[in-house]
């Protein structure tokens, strides 16, 4: 376990007109750690994720990433080339809507292979083998390797998106409601898959979810957001079993047997 955070956010603020989406948010994420960011719709949790990933620029505050070599870099000051390079090598992003995270016009194999090719892989056979291995790992039959995601169910698309993201073994993955919009049984399978992969690969994950059960299953730590602020944070089971803030108590009590 490293003593330095892989990602640190300090004093992040961002307003959309009169709406304060983020209001002085600070947090740290350590290597190999899963941090869940929970809260209701409009609490600012998805905005926070996008700002951490460099996809949205804050009005104030800074996000610092520490790379493989231990060098610190300011996410909003590194420039687009460096940010894009990170996004396709050391980082990943799993989106709620698989259609945003996948290339719908490209086969499953091409979707998984893209990051490999973007980082220099030029051997068709190896790319295909690696893609087939990852399809299997996310429980998609390798016989579907040449099928396009349009022919897949919602759960399969999401698993494909995870394979596409993890194939280059990123160190840090942002997940925005990865189980949103899926049937409950499909969610459980996906969560379990994410849990296994994340712990096997030792990936740091910033997970935005409104699903308390998902947070409990996956996260080492939990951050509760409301109206653009962090109202409570700590060890996942302690925040959920011994919530202090009125809003967290409300959130926990609204969930059936999390």
């Amino acid at each position: 376990m490293s003593d330095d955070p892989i990602l640190s956010a300090r004093g992040l603020s961002l307003s959309f007109g009169a709406v304060r989406a983020l209001d002085g948010v600070s947090l740290d994420l350590w290597p190999g750690e899963v941090l869940a960011i929970v809260g209701e719709s409009g609490s600012g949790k998805s905005t926070l994720l996008r700002v951490m990933a460099g996809e949205a620029r804050p009005d104030a505050g800074a996000v610092t990433y520490r790379d493989t070599l231990g060098a610190s870099m300011e996410v909003h000051g590194m420039g687009e080339p460096a940010l894009r390079r990170l996004a396709r090598t050391e980082w990943g992003f799993v989106r709620q809507d698989a259609r945003e995270g996948l290339r719908m016009g490209v086969s499953a194999g091409g979707n998984v292979g893209e990051r490999l090719m973007a980082t220099g892989a030029r051997h068709y056979g190896s790319i295909r083998e690696e893609a087939a291995r990852w399809l299997e790992r996310v429980e998609i039959s390798p016989s579907r390797i040449d099928d396009r995601p349009g022919t897949f169910s919602g759960g399969m698309r999401q698993r494909l998106q995870i394979a596409r993201t993890l194939v280059t073994r990123p160190r840090l993955v942002f997940m925005d409601e990865p189980t949103g919009g899926l049937d409950v049984s499909v969610q459980a399978r996906l969560l379990d898959l994410i849990r296994g992969l994340v712990s096997d690969l030792g990936i740091a994950v910033a997970l935005v979810t409104h699903d308390i059960a998902a947070a409990r299953l996956l996260a080492h730590r939990l951050v509760v957001m409301r109206e653009g602020r962090i109202v409570e944070e700590g060890l996942t089971d302690r925040v959920l079993d011994d919530p202090r803030h009125p809003y967290t108590q409300l959130l926990v009590s609204s969930v059936l047997a999390a």
Binding site: G234, L235, D237, R238, D241, D242, R244
Partner: peptide
């Protein structure tokens, strides 16, 4: 017991 386990603060 929960305090000793860290489950309660």
């Amino acid at each position: 017991m929960r305090l000793l386990q860290g489950n309660y603060g």
